[in-house]
Simulated assay, not measured.
Amino acid sequence: MSRRRTSARAAQAAPRCTVTVCRGCCCGTGKIPGVDHEAQLATLRAELGSIAQVRAVNCLDACEQANVVVVQPSATGRAAGGRPVWLGLVNDPDATADITAWVGAGGPGLAEVPEILDLYVFSPSRRVRRAVEED
């Protein structure tokens, strides 16, 4: 199947932004002491549950960036040129609040990534990126 068809299918299947939160081997565990991983996920779900799909996954295979959050655009955001944004080292409540505000404003393709979140943006390998973005 071509990428174009895959992207079109993904856009049709995701009318809202999707926020994927890694909770695998390094993210969501004791690797990052002092981070309340359960509270972070609960906050994302409480703040975004009515406007975005929030899902926890086992491992995004970007352990050196723990905790990892991927914000995928809505169908409208994708049509406007938005692409998934990978955020790493999301280990404090302020970063979580910045993510919820950005997704609340529309997310990728519809709202600029807040400058503060530029500090968290990273590019995973194509293999890792493809596995998540095609879900």
Rank of each mutant, 00 (worst) to 15 (best):
G24V: 06
G28F: 07
K31S: 13
G34H: 02
V71N: 02
L48F: 08
C25I: 11
Q53P: 01
A95K: 11
E47R: 11
C27L: 01
G28A: 00
A39S: 06
V21H: 04
V68F: 07
V70D: 08
N91D: 12
L60N: 07
H37G: 08
D61M: 10
V54A: 00
E64P: 10
C27F: 07
V57I: 15
D98Y: 00
D94K: 12
W86H: 00
V71C: 01
R23T: 15
L87M: 04
A42S: 15
C22K: 01
G28P: 03
N58H: 13
L89M: 01
E38A: 15
P73T: 15
R23M: 11
Q40T: 06
C25G: 12
V85F: 04
V69T: 04
S50Q: 12
L41H: 04
R55I: 13
R45L: 05
C25T: 10
T96D: 08
R55C: 13
K31V: 10
A79R: 15
T96S: 10
Q65A: 01
T76W: 09
P84W: 09
C25Q: 07
W86A: 08
Q40M: 13
R78K: 14
C27V: 01
Q65Y: 09
P93M: 03
L41W: 05
A66C: 10
A97R: 00
R55Q: 15
G81W: 14
A97I: 01
L87Q: 02
C25W: 03
V21C: 07
A46T: 11
A52V: 11
G49K: 06
R55T: 12
A79H: 09
R45P: 00
P33I: 08
C63F: 07
L48A: 14
V71M: 04
V35D: 06
R83D: 05
L60K: 09
G49A: 12
G34P: 12
A46G: 09
G24N: 01
I32H: 13
Q72F: 07
E38F: 10
G88L: 05
D94T: 14
I51Q: 13
R78N: 07
K31Y: 10
Q40C: 08
Q53M: 13
V90Y: 00
V70M: 05
G30C: 05
A52L: 11
G30S: 15
P73H: 01
R83M: 06
V69C: 03
Q65H: 08
V85E: 09
G82T: 11
Q53V: 07
Q40G: 05
A39K: 13
E64I: 03
A97C: 00
V70Y: 00
E47P: 10
A42Q: 14
L60M: 15
E38T: 14
V71G: 05
R23E: 05
P73S: 08
A42N: 09
E47K: 08
A39P: 06
Q40H: 13
A52M: 02
G81K: 11
